[in-house]
Design a binder for these strands. Structure first.
Lengths: 247, 247
DNA sequence: CCAAAAGTGTTCGTGATACACCCATGG
DNA sequence: CCATGGGTGTATCACGAACACTTTTGG
């Protein structure tokens, strides 16, 4: 692996990705543990000198997860002047930063927050060159995080819940063909709230974004649930235009 | 006025403010015309080396409008690598940038987008040191803008409309005491859409954020409309928690 | 007294909520 | 054959949309 060259990147600007993974019942978030640290951190990176921020985020995502077509959304930029201060000295002291990059890392950073939604299973977590572990953590058991990453995570979660009010969710998070209970479990995991089975399916169907298939998921106990798939064009239209406005 | 010293600011990061002003019937946006340019630009600025982005935006706002307690919202960061390329050469050629700042201005910039909502009347538009004019423009007659400012403006407007779905609007935009038709005119201006008088007032009242007063606005023709004021605590709670969730 | 705008009430339809019942499957 | 979960139907209620009538004011 080639070493980190600070001149490849614009200074003072980083990005952090809150990657949510759905495992069928719970939401998890992908975290890294830096060498020599007990705390964990959000996967992040820097923007190349001629790169769009969104492309940088996609690159980071691809590097950490192996997956390239995730739903990715910029949600906020974090600019507190001391946001990295608490841990950056420790980072330098531990000697995991190359000599030539120490100055780059010492400066104040603002960070673009992105969130991504993905399926737990298609992801192969890969640590970056600063980390020794990359792993999923369920949202109700998130360990201590570096810097202001805890706050970034919280805001990402709020943002996902807000987006859910107006935009369809599920593409990339569920298998191509999925059952209604699976989709419902996803919504319940994101909202951390139980929903009524019957009303849920009626509402989803009324949006016209899923299509009923003539197949059932067999093999498990109980009645075989019917399979559905997203209607691509309607789904994308709903992503762009929203699902309904109140005024 | 002291000259611009690039070492006071973090490099490569700017901010742009989309300041919407309501004049009683239409939404306007505050724009600057740079010396020697025909195009206009959003009021913007840079972040001091030890300053929070939000504080920098408040500072810019204060400098351009004279007003300090505006509702200000960060909504997106613009990171296209060539976003300023089209005009930055022209800017340098016109010689309105100090010699010592030319290098600072030449570099690629990412820009934090903020929007603010204010009352047209309480604002005293003041050009910055690069501009010769600072003036309101109605949304349906926005002139050519520099850089990607047109796109920033469009996205800000979309964001305001989205925020309107869930959050109260009106504080700072209307006088302390206002009439229901005035509030409705504001909503109509933002949404660019006519609303039903009767349904509107019922809905607003149901949110519990305004209080009916025993006063009327007299002096104009026709029936004297009743005055209302915002209930501060309920208004702020609604700003924070939103007005209603759909799931 | 009349035009124009403000205030209030009613109806209607849609969509959310809260239920109860039937169906399929594996053990 | 039964426990468990999946699928569908229906009554009710709240809310938004559409609409009509009355009230107040200045001219």
């Amino acid at each position: 692996m080639k070493t980190f060259d600070p001149t490849d990147f614009i200074p003072g600007v980083s990005l952090d990705c809150v990657i949510f993974g759905f495992d069928g019942s719970r939401l998890n978030v992908l975290l890294l543990r830096l060498r020599g640290f007990d705390e964990w951190a959000l996967p992040g990176g820097f923007i190349k000198t001629d790169e769009h921020g969104d492309d940088a985020a996609l690159r980071v995502l691809k590097e950490r997860t192996g997956v390239s077509d995730l739903f990715l959304q910029q949600f906020k930029t974090f600019t507190h002047p001391d946001r990295t201060k608490v841990h950056v000295q420790e980072l330098l002291r531990k000697g995991i930063i190359d000599e030539n990059a120490r100055e780059y890392f010492t400066s104040r950073f603002i960070s673009l927050g992105y969130y991504a939604l993905t399926n737990h299973n298609i992801v192969k977590p890969a640590p970056d060159y600063l980390s020794e572990e990359c792993a999923w953590h369920p949202l109700d058991a998130v360990p201590e995080l570096l810097y202001d990453h805890r706050a970034i995570l919280e805001e990402a979660l709020e943002e996902v819940r807000l987006d859910l009010q107006y935009h369809p969710v599920g593409q990339n998070l569920l298998p191509k063909k999925f059952t209604m209970p699976e989709l419902q479990a996803l919504y319940e995991a994101i909202l951390d709230k139980e929903l009524d089975r019957r009303n849920f399916s009626r509402r989803v169907m009324s949006y016209g974004i899923v299509e009923k298939l003539d197949e059932h998921r067999t093999g498990m106990a109980h009645k075989a649930p019917r399979l559905y798939k997203f209607k691509k064009s309607a789904y994308e239209k709903a992503l762009k235009d929203g699902l309904s406005n109140r005024w």
